[in-house]
Amino acid sequence: MPNQHIAIIYKSQLSTFNVAFIGLGSLAMIGFGIKFIMDTQESGINWFIIFPLIIIFIGGLILSNTLALCSVATTKEFLILNYPFLRRTIRIPWKSITDAGMTFVTTKSSGSDHAFRTGREIRLFADGKNYRFTTISIKNPERLLLELKKRLDSSLKTKMKDDYRKSKSDFWKSENDYRRWIKKVVLPICLIILILLWALSK
């Protein structure tokens, strides 16, 4: 009979689609940025280089975060974070977790995005170290959240719930503010410009 302390109770899997989508998207951004530099800097370096460098930086940041994605497993004694791309495994004793938080996260990149994925970023503090992982990249994240609720202290669960509710509310408020701004400011200005262009062309 296996030792109950190390027997795996729950083990998550990384979502192949999400990881591939995010990874390929970051590589595409880096490639686009490099091509942008080559196309705009043929006659010498100029200020246009700022834009492709920003694109490359963002793509590199997304790629580094993709490589740091982890799957999660639980036992009676440990929360286990497995980083497949970094070939690293971290075992966190449940009793060592002294603080926790949970925020709303999304793959939404701009106000015009209509199809985007949402999830939760979970933050844990144990033995003087901070650990973060997101449910966006994990298959069946609800099962993981259920396992965390079983193991964490009630005060930490309450704090995580409050953090998540506030961050989700803030996100949708900013989203609604953006849409109102588009309707009340941007669209009228665009309409006025079109009318002026039409009138001047007469």
Rank of each mutant, 00 (worst) to 15 (best):
P2G: 01
N3Y: 07
H5L: 09
I8V: 04
I9H: 08
K11M: 00
K11F: 00
K11D: 00
Q13T: 07
T16S: 14
F17R: 07
N18P: 01
V19Y: 01
A20R: 09
A20S: 06
A20W: 14
L27G: 00
A28Y: 06
M29I: 01
I30Y: 00
I30S: 01
I34D: 13
K35I: 10
I37E: 11
I37S: 08
M38S: 10
Q41W: 03
G44P: 03
G44I: 05
I45F: 01
W47G: 11
W47F: 11
I50E: 05
P52G: 03
I55M: 05
F57K: 08
F57Y: 09
F57I: 12
I58E: 02
I62G: 01
N65R: 11
L69T: 07
C70S: 05
S71F: 00
S71I: 00
T74A: 01
T75C: 03
K76Y: 12
K76C: 04
I80A: 06
L81R: 01
R87D: 02
R87H: 07
R88L: 03
I90T: 10
K95E: 14
S96R: 09
A100N: 07
A100D: 05
G101R: 04
M102P: 02
V105Y: 11
V105L: 07
S110E: 06
G111P: 06
D113Q: 09
H114Y: 12
A115S: 13
F116K: 04
G119P: 07
E121N: 14
E121Q: 12
E121H: 14
I122E: 06
L124D: 08
F125D: 14
A126H: 04
G128A: 09
N130E: 09
N130W: 02
T135H: 00
S137Q: 01
K139H: 05
P141V: 05
E142L: 14
L145I: 07
L145R: 04
R151K: 12
S154M: 12
S154F: 14
K157R: 10
T158W: 12
D162L: 15
R165I: 11
K166P: 09
K168A: 12
D170T: 15
S174Y: 15
Y178P: 13
R179I: 13
K183S: 13
I189C: 09
L194R: 08
I195V: 15
I195S: 13
I195Y: 10
L196Q: 11
L196P: 04
W198D: 04
